[in-house]
Write a protein that binds this DNA or RNA. Structure first.
Length: 184
DNA sequence: GCGACAG
DNA sequence: ATCTTGTCGC
């Protein structure tokens, strides 16, 4: 998702890939006024309306979603990946670029190195995963209908040499283009 | 009371 | 999220 502060609008983008070829088979986007502010822990209320609209436009029903944000690695175990998964009734993986909640030990520097992310009551709620040599790790946590181990496996499977998984990285670039066109 | 705080 | 060129490290 991308933002246009001036117009207070959110740009959501979704890209569907064929597995295991990983070529794009469909793209969709949506632009809507934002009706909720950004409050850490309440990201769902701000982004799901826009993300939901972009996903509704799809002709294909994806079998798995990589979501930009946390899954159960959340103060109430309800990150945006959980919310989206419940609404769609589809498996979702939370793939965040930074920490929202939990504690962890710094993982090794090699690609694939990881350390568990713990909640306040010392339960494993995610995995801090190094997706590229010497780059900041990603915070992976299950959203809906998937477990942590499988979530990490899928993220590693769709990495293609960059820090962010291919779906996330290309969807980001996609909304970035839309925003440039939109504000011209 | 103080610090932390997805996008 | 976003503002943004050059720059440091692997």
């Amino acid at each position: 998702m991308a933002l246009d502060p001036e117009r207070n609008e959110g740009y959501a983008g979704v890209i569907v890939y064929a597995w295991p070829e990983m070529h794009i088979i469909e793209k969709s986007s949506a632009i809507l006024p934002l009706k909720f502010p950004y409050i850490p822990g309440l990201l769902s209320f701000r982004e799901i309306p826009v993300l939901g609209k972009a996903i509704e436009e799809l002709e294909i029903e994806p079998d798995l979603f990589f979501v930009d944000g946390q899954g159960i690695a959340h103060p109430r175990s309800m990150g945006i990946a959980c919310h989206l998964g419940l609404l769609l009734e589809k498996p979702t993986i939370g793939c965040a670029k930074s920490l929202l909640y939990g504690s962890y030990k710094k993982p090794g520097q090699k690609r694939g190195d990881s350390e568990p992310l713990y909640s306040k009551d010392k339960k494993v709620i995610g995995q801090v995963l190094r997706t590229k040599l010497s780059c900041n790790p990603l915070f992976i946590s299950p959203g809906h209908l998937i477990d942590l181990e499988t979530s990490v496996e899928w993220v590693l499977r769709v990495l293609d040499g960059y820090r962010l998984p291919k779906p996330t990285r290309e969807a980001d670039a996609f909304v970035g283009e839309l925003k440039r066109e939109g504000r011209k």
